[in-house]
């Protein structure tokens, strides 16, 4: 796929993706807007600029793999994949409806261009490690990118996989923690604190960058640094705002897993005009 690297152009796409996320979830009457909006720049930068992939040939052997471990935030994944041409844009509003390719959580049976069916938290990094190991065995340049939630890393399996990645020097994987500080029941710090996040990953043997997850040039720089990091896996802690871009959703735990009303949707789209 022809890469788009101009930050202004990517920012414009990000804004468009946010509008599509709001529309999809409003139409579905359920879903998870907050974490889709916090991860928008991460996914846009990856799919438009960083990943080596070919939407016309989704099973290309040497493609980079992307896994949305926090599968509930699939609206942003679907929007970005549709933008790339993997799947039809005009069906985005069938999200969560019977027979839709856009299932409530990513489901490879319905959308084979996905790399993994996710939704049960804590599993994506292990899957990504398996794909990264396979690439190494095949002497393929393919890399794996896994986006995790900051609440998700409360799952013990994440730390099993963190140990494995460092122990086996899996340097062709990048974990991106969408650090939006909110999970379903409230603020991460109140539910089960995960700080100090960067120190945790560092102590598990990962190369760690703690960056602004909404700043596209910073994200581009971080992914470039990850690609150059040899001998150990990279974790990017992306500092983000839950619900980013819609004033009444920002930092509001209510919009972790609640669809906006029609009125709220109209208001949100106005802010994202």
């Amino acid at each position: 796929m022809k890469k788009k690297s101009n930050p202004a152009e990517l920012a414009a796409i990000a804004k468009q993706m946010r509008r599509e996320v709001i529309e999809m979830i409003t139409e579905a009457k359920s879903g998870h807007p907050g974490g889709s909006l916090s991860a928008t720049e991460i996914l846009v930068t990856l799919f438009m600029d960083v990943l080596r992939h070919d939407p016309a040939n989704p099973k290309w052997k040497d493609r980079d793999r992307f896994i949305l471990s926090k599968g509930h935030c699939c609206p942003i994944l679907y929007a970005v994949m549709a933008e790339c041409g993997y799947c039809p844009k005009d069906q985005l509003n069938t999200l969560r409806k019977l027979g839709s390719i856009y299932q409530g959580h990513p489901d490879v049976r319905f959308l084979p261009a996905l790399e993994a069916s996710t939704g049960s938290l804590g599993e994506g990094l292990s899957l990504g490690l398996g794909m990264a190991l396979a690439a190494k065995l095949d002497k393929s340049p393919a890399r794996a990118y896994v986006v995790l939630g900051d609440g998700e890393i409360q799952e013990g399996q994440v730390w099993e996989s963190a140990m494995f990645g460092a122990m086996h020097h899996v340097d062709n994987i990048v974990a991106i923690v969408d650090h939006n500080k909110i999970q379903l029941d409230g603020f991460v710090a109140d539910i089960m604190a995960v700080e100090p996040l960067a120190e945790k990953w560092r102590s598990f043997g990962w190369h760690v960058m703690d960056i602004d997850g909404h700043d596209i040039p910073t994200l581009q720089k971080a992914f470039a640094e990850a690609a150059e990091t040899k001998g150990k896996p990279t974790c990017i802690i992306a500092e983000t705002i839950k619900g980013k871009g819609v004033s009444f959703m920002e930092n509001n735990p209510k919009f972790h897993g609640m669809a906006p009303t029609k009125d709220e949707c109209a208001l949100a789209l106005k802010e994202l005009a």
Binding site: R65, G130, M131, A134, Q157, M163, F164
Partner: peptide
């Protein structure tokens, strides 16, 4: 080179296996 010691972490082992399988291996 085709044997991966996962330590005492069965959940991670199974899902890494699934990732390898998704990339064409027979784990």
């Amino acid at each position: 080179e085709r044997f991966f010691e996962c330590g005492i972490a069965e959940a991670n082992m199974v899902a890494i296996g699934a990732g390898l399988a998704a990339s064409g291996k027979i784990p």
